[in-house]
Each structure stands twice: as structure tokens, then as C-alpha cells.
Design a protein around this nucleic acid. Structure first.
Lengths: 187, 187
DNA sequence: GTCTATAGGAGGATAGAC
DNA sequence: GTCTATCCTCCTATAGAC
């Protein structure tokens, strides 16, 4: 899987993460992939097409990890903690979430849809685990699982923002631990 | 205050909000402000300098509103609710938070510092109100006010991300209401 | 499949006239 | 203070040869 086409997608994934969509040029992708203009325009119709492939691959790469942590061993609350506390590349930001600030991404359904799908799926799975946790008495019963699931994902995404603004992971950790203390049912 | 210098800053504020830093060109700022090249480079040393002025002005414009809602009338918890539920231009995103995804912004201390200052100030003020709320028994006492304050700001910032990804404000509202239900002390 | 050549436009900035 | 002219580089894409 290290043919030119695949290498181009890999480079696009990296650059999309580092610089976003608008700030990433076909040239930069090509040179990082060690491929020429002709190669790229042979495999893809243009920048947007290649970016779409990169986004879809990133989405596929992120799903299994989240899934396994939320469906893994441990009580519902323990699985929620494991998911929220998993090590993330905080200062680099979310590979998908950061793209959503890009006007050209939000405007192109082919680019936006796979991103939204990841968030939707994550929220749905978190809500499921939250329901289990409520049944087990680990999470207060008077909270709406769907709302709280959105809250949890928002804390992660917002934690990235605070960390990048502050230049350190501290704020991210504080936000995560803060929400964890709140979801946990009072003794 | 509608001289060329001020108009350039206003245009820069708008474009920074709409397109971010990298995707905003001096040309675009000038044409929106109705000013020429010469005018801009007379008042500012370049794009970064003008952007810095725009960011500082936006920061100044955001502070009073937040301050008044958190120091206004009502119980501590009511003030927290008022702050979190205030109407925001959700789909447009945060004027400052969105810039933090931009590599060129994070790299330039003159651009990043005023952004971080707003977040730091907001977190500090929220922590203060949270402490009051705990004393009043409105918020569970076993939570760290500084952590929860970071959580609240993160939920807002992350709510923007979810909303833009989904193309609707629903997810934002869900995240906000979710965290509000969690901070409120159990009956 | 991949390379090179080429193209029109935009980006960011400087210089000097008015 | 503001205008116009000018500069070099990068952007994204197309064309056609190998």
C-alpha cells in the first residue's frame, strides 16, 4: 500500500492536520509524497478530491480505537473514563475537528459529511454507554444521555482549542477532569 | 472613528472571523475597507500587524458582555446559566477560538497572546462564580472550580465545532444543556 | 502512470510620485 | 496619507510528451 496514490493520501492527511485545507497546497502534498504533478492529477481530479480521500481515510482510522475503548472491558463509567483520558495529540488538535473551521470545507459536502459522521457516531455510542452507566447507578439518572454525550465530545474538541491557545496541555486536562468529576454520580 | 485606519481594522476583524488568518489576504481587507495598498501599509507594517490590531479589538469587544453577565444580578447558578445560554452566532464560530487552528497564529505570540488572555480571564471569572455557587449549595461541592471552569469554556468552544460539522445549532445547544444539567447540584 | 512545460491569477510587500 | 506601478513567489490546473 505504498504506491503513489496511497502516499499522496498519506501526505494529504498529514498536511490537512498540520495546516488545514485552504493552507495546504497540491504542491506541498506532492513533494511530501515524492510524487509529481502528473501523478497527482492522474489519480485525483484535483485538490478537493484528494482531500476527500484523505479525510475519509482519517475517519476510518479513528473509528476502531474509539469503538474498542467504549465497548471494551470495565464498567460503563470506567469505559467513559478510558475514552476521555486516552492520550491524544492535544497541541496538534483534532485531525477532523480542526478542518471544520475551514470555510472551504464546510461549504463542500463531500468534505464535511465524513467529518460529521464521525462526530455523530461518537455521540451515539457515548450516549449508549451513558445509559448503561445510569442503569448501573454510576451516572446521575436525571441527565439526558444524548445531551451529555454531546457535552463530552464538545469538551474534547474545546479542550484542544484551549490547549492550543494556551500553548500547553494543562487546560485540556483540566477540562476533561472537570467534566469527569461532574458526570460521576455523587456519593 | 471611521477613518481609514479604523475601517481597516474592522474589515480585518470580519474577515478573520469568516476566513481565518491565513486565508485572509491584505487585498481582501483593503477592498472591503475601501482603502488602497498605500493606506494599509502606511498604518500597519503588514498583514500580521493589522491582524494583531484586529484581534486585540475583538478581544476588547468581547470582554464587557461576559463580565456583565457573570457579575450581574441573580444567584451564582443563574448567572452561569445566563452566560452559557446567551445567544451566540453558533454557526459562524468563535471569533477568537477559530483562529487558534491557524498555524500562523499559534506561531506568532503577538497574535496568540490576546486570544489566550481572553480564555484565561473567562476561566478565572467562571471559577469565581462557581465557588460562590458551591457556597450557596447550587453546585456540587466535590468538584474543582478551576477544572469545571475550563470545562465550561471548552463546552462552548467544542459546541461551535459540533455545530459547524453538523450544519446546525442543535448539537451546540445539546452540549450546553448537557453540561448545565451536570453542574446543577442534585436535588 | 509519470514527467515537464506552461498558464493566468493571487499573495504579500516595496518604491516613489502626489 | 493615499495612489499607482512593479516585483517575485506560490497557487491550482491543463497539455502533451514519454
Amino acid at each position: 500500500m505504498d504506491d503513489a496514490r496511497s502516499r499522496l493520501i498519506t501526505s494529504a492527511q498529514e498536511l490537512l492536520w498540520e495546516r488545514g485545507y485552504t493552507a495546504t497546497s497540491p504542491r506541498a502534498i506532492q513533494s511530501r509524497a515524492g510524487a509529481g504533478q502528473g501523478s497527482m492529477y492522474h489519480h485525483f481530479t484535483g485538490k478537493a478530491d484528494l482531500a476527500g480521500a484523505a479525510i475519509r481515510r482519517t475517519a476510518e482510522e479513528m473509528t476502531p480505537g474509539a469503538r474498542s475503548r467504549l465497548e471494551g472491558p470495565g464498567s460503563p463509567l470506567e469505559r467513559l473514563r478510558a475514552y476521555l483520558r486516552v492520550e491524544r495529540d492535544v497541541l496538534r488538535g483534532c485531525r477532523l475537528g480542526r478542518l471544520v473551521q475551514d470555510q472551504d470545507v464546510v461549504t463542500d459536502p463531500h468534505l464535511l459529511e465524513p467529518i460529521d459522521a464521525v462526530f455523530s457516531g461518537t455521540i451515539a455510542r457515548l450516549a449508549e454507554v451513558l445509559r448503561e452507566a445510569q442503569e448501573a447507578g454510576e451516572v446521575r439518572a436525571d441527565a439526558d444521555p444524548d445531551q451529555v454525550a454531546a457535552t463530552l465530545v464538545a469538551v474534547i474538541q474545546g479542550g484542544y482549542v484551549l490547549a492550543r491557545a494556551h500553548g500547553s496541555t494543562e487546560r485540556y486536562t483540566a477540562a476533561i477532569e472537570g467534566v469527569l468529576s461532574l458526570v460521576t454520580a455523587s456519593p
